[in-house]
Amino acid sequence: MKPFQLTYTAEHSGLLREALGAWGISKRTLASVKYGGGQILVNDQEVTVRHVLEKGDAVTVIFPNEEHGKGLLAEDGYLDIVYEDEVLLIVEKPPLQNTIPSREHPFGSLANIVAKHFNDHGIPSTLHIATRLDRDTSGLVCIAKNRHIHHMISQQQQEKKMKRRYEALVHGQIDKTEFTITAPIGRKNTSIIEREVREDGQFAETEVRVLQNLQGYAHVSLQLNTGRTHQIRVHLAHIGHPLVGDDLYGGKRDLVNRQALHCTEIELIHPVSGEPLIFHSSLNHDMHSLL
């Protein structure tokens, strides 16, 4: 399998190590290149990071092939691909499917099916899921095809250059049109699964826009500015409007047998080309029928 590689042009003279850092290649990635069978070439000649670049030099980083995770079984299954290129895979996850295997659901996860897709198409990478969804949540998922691209997407998330938007159905009508929930989230002392708003938690911020009020419910659009576990679920429950179907955080299952939450949009900058990308997803049929 041909290894993944990227080529850059030096814009000015200086140490190669510094140029690689400016291009977003982390020290961890450089270590994997050095010790994992990769190469760094300048004008087609192998060099070390101590090499001094001249303006206009062509720098090629050849990344080592990654081994598939031995504990992840590749399984046949339907994969709803929204977008795919050499470095990115954007897919639709249906509700009631794990993103990755768990003790309760060891088979049939999105990761199992993507692993089979990677095997079938000779993609030399382990799985790098950049935007994980809960089992009940449906919608768009972003997957990187190698460690370096995953690192670059994570940087975008930290710098708020990547945006994820959701739609949800919540209990109760909401008087405000737009507002922001800023409340720290941490693990609940009495549970290994549940989270809660707590002073010693991690900073978390969710933007909320009310699309329409229904009889006893509200249809809302949400944007995550941070990516804490169960963030949307915890924040909405915290303000007294839990997700419909989310019985872990106070929602009722009389209308739908899962939390009514769908990732409708992912916006990011392509980690190689720099092109702005935006992907859309319509609500799953069960949520659509409720509206």
Rank of each mutant, 00 (worst) to 15 (best):
K93I: 06
P94S: 14
P95N: 03
L96G: 09
N98S: 09
N98A: 11
P101H: 11
P101L: 11
R103A: 13
E104G: 02
E104T: 14
H105F: 07
H105P: 05
H105I: 09
P106H: 04
P106C: 02
P106E: 00
G108M: 04
N112W: 04
I113Q: 02
I113F: 08
K116D: 04
K116P: 05
H117Q: 12
H121Y: 13
G122C: 10
S125T: 08
S125H: 08
L127Q: 01
H128A: 00
I129V: 10
I129S: 01
T131D: 03
L133N: 08
L133Q: 08
L133S: 01
D134A: 06
R135I: 13
T137M: 07
G139D: 07
G139H: 04
G139Q: 07
L140G: 05
C142M: 10
A144V: 00
K145I: 15
N146V: 06
H148V: 06
I149H: 05
H150W: 08
H151W: 04
M152K: 03
S154A: 13
Q155W: 01
Q155C: 07
Q155L: 01
Q158W: 10
Q158H: 12
E159C: 07
K160L: 15
K161R: 15
R164S: 08
R164Q: 12
R164F: 07
R165E: 05
R165W: 01
R165V: 03
R165A: 06
L169I: 09
L169S: 07
V170S: 02
V170Q: 06
V170F: 00
H171Q: 00
G172D: 03
G172K: 03
D175C: 15
K176E: 14
K176F: 14
E178H: 15
F179Q: 10
T180R: 03
I181G: 05
A183E: 04
R187P: 03
K188R: 15
N189E: 15
T190Y: 04
S191A: 01
S191K: 07
I192Y: 00
I193V: 15
I193M: 09
E194L: 15
R195N: 08
R195K: 13
E196A: 13
R198M: 14
G201F: 07
Q202Y: 07
Q202K: 12
F203D: 02
A204T: 02
T206R: 03
T206M: 06
